[in-house]
């Protein structure tokens, strides 16, 4: 199948039911997208498909053919996406494992809602688990990213 990831076309030899997560990580070596649960319960695997936040662990890679897939590696060339800037400014990360997913979910949110309020943040971000407890800074950084101009 042919997948367009971060603007580049990749031909991959994968079973049609193989989740996008494992195509990214194990076939293409793009390990920024993380495995946490395999059941769309934790959000660590969040990527964008045509701009929408999707859980790549339960998304069949074949269903993303012909669509624009964006991963943490492609969010910006240099960590300069407003969400990444806000994350750096507010020192959000701790262990960092969930943060690729958090950042991708936040980026999709601020792209669709330039002034997300707490309810919108709860709605978009509640599906993403952080065991270090960075939630307060995530909430603040989403708001800061919106101030910085979303995308």
């Amino acid at each position: 199948m042919r997948l367009t990831i971060n603007g580049t076309a990749h031909d991959v030899d994968a079973a049609p039911d193989m989740p996008l997560l494992w195509v990214l990580r194990d076939l293409l070596g793009m390990t920024g997208t993380k495995y946490g649960c395999g059941m769309a319960l934790c959000g660590a695997c969040t990527v964008h498909i045509d701009g929408e936040a999707k859980r790549s662990c339960t998304t069949k890679a074949s269903s993303a053919e012909g669509k624009q897939i964006t991963t943490i590696e492609g969010l910006s060339d240099d960590g300069s996406h407003p969400v990444q800037q806000a994350w750096a400014e507010l020192d959000v990360v701790q262990c960092g494992y969930c943060q690729s997913g958090q950042i991708m979910a936040a980026a999709a949110l601020v792209a669709s809602d330039p002034t997300p309020d707490d309810a919108a943040i709860d709605q978009a971000m509640n599906g993403l688990i952080c065991r270090c407890g960075t939630y307060e800074r995530i909430r603040a950084a989403v708001k800061r990213a919106a101030e910085l101009g979303g995308r």
């Binding site: 920024g32 993380k34 994350w87 750096a88 959000v92 990360v93 960092g96 943060q99």
Partner: peptide, 21 residues
């Protein structure tokens, strides 16, 4: 002091055990 591991952890570059290839 701000964290020194932030840049690699906000760009997906930080290597965890599961990322070894």
């Amino acid at each position: 002091r701000k964290r020194l591991d932030t840049p690699e952890k906000i760009t997906g570059q930080a290597q965890f055990g599961i990322d070894v290839q």
